[in-house]
Simulated assay, not measured.
Amino acid sequence: MNADAGQPQPIPAPEPLDGRAELSEFLRTRRARLQPEDVGLPNFGRHRRVPGLRREELAQLAGVSVAYYTRLEQGNGRNVSGEVLDAIARALRLTDAEHAHLTHLAKPKQHKKKRAARPQRMRPALLQLMDAMDGVPAYVVGRRSDILGWNRMAAALFGDWGALPPEERNWARLCFLHPEARALFLDWEQKASDIVSFLRMDAGCYPNDPLLSALVGELSVKSEEFRSLWATHDVREKGHGVKRVHHSLVGDMTLSFETLRLPDDHDQSLVTYHAEPDSASADALRLLASWGADATRTGASGTGKQ
């Protein structure tokens, strides 16, 4: 575990994330990663007190006044238009995920506070579908990286989530506070970064979610690595990719994952893992499936957790 050493520190009471501060820090960190030559501006070699583009350079690229951009970077995005946000996104070379995050921060939708309070419930048919996916580890993840349901193969691969208290069935807590997750993922640093990016996107959509604020506060107190990653303000969406895992029974595996956002609830995604056919990883996964036949059955959180 990479929690801070010494006596346990008190966890602060959850407060809503400061939307103005989030917008300000996101723009500042995106501006800091660019140099004039990256965006076609001359670099005269003058001493720069802070890294990256100056505000006036970014404003020039976006076609807005320096005063207007300064107000936006100070967190005042109340009256900003979509066209201006598009121009700033282009000037900052934002990805699609970063562009969406900027829009959520600058122009938060009023209904999202109400939606954030709605309990997360997984449809029973999804659990039946995962049960039918023989040999394929699968689970459903919701807001705040909560694990809402899983099949037998997911339990065999990742561990017996059913034995954990419902509040611990959360990828962020597992990744940063459970040493077993660090041992499982050979590319743990990338997994940790992906999870924090996921939480950042969630925070942009639901800044008033008290459970998300509590989770961020807890992890910030208990994990220096989480604090460091959270401070980068990086956001990205990974719909697919490759993970390398080490299982104590079958050894190392290279598995591809697919993340399928549910059409009737975009806050929930079905995540599946598979190995390349006729590979050593496929053999290991079949062996794990055979072992897992007598292991933990499928599960769902069933808590009505928000």
Rank of each mutant, 00 (worst) to 15 (best):
M1S: 13
A3L: 05
D4F: 04
P14K: 06
P16N: 08
P16K: 10
L17I: 03
E25H: 04
L27T: 00
R30N: 01
R30E: 00
G40T: 09
N43Y: 15
E57A: 14
L58Y: 07
G63T: 07
V64S: 06
L72E: 01
N76T: 01
G77T: 03
R78H: 02
N79Y: 00
G82K: 07
E83M: 10
D86I: 03
A87Q: 12
L92I: 06
T95A: 03
H99A: 08
P108H: 09
K109R: 15
K112T: 13
K114L: 11
R115T: 15
A116S: 15
L126A: 14
L127R: 15
L129S: 12
A132S: 13
A132C: 04
M133P: 01
D134Y: 09
G135V: 05
V136E: 03
A138S: 14
G149A: 15
W150L: 04
W150D: 00
A156N: 04
W161N: 09
W161P: 00
P165G: 12
A172R: 04
C175S: 13
L177W: 09
H178Y: 04
P179N: 10
D187I: 07
A192K: 05
S193K: 12
G204V: 02
P207S: 10
D209P: 00
L211A: 08
L215I: 07
E218K: 14
L219E: 08
K222E: 12
S223R: 15
V235F: 08
G239A: 04
G241L: 03
V242D: 05
K243M: 07
R244H: 13
H246P: 06
H247R: 05
L249Y: 01
V250H: 10
V250G: 03
T254D: 07
L255M: 02
T259R: 15
L260G: 02
R261V: 08
L262N: 02
P263T: 15
P263V: 15
D264Q: 09
D264R: 15
D265A: 15
L270Q: 11
V271C: 06
T272H: 05
A275V: 13
E276K: 15
L288K: 02
W291D: 07
G292I: 11
G292D: 09
A293F: 01
G304M: 02
K305N: 04
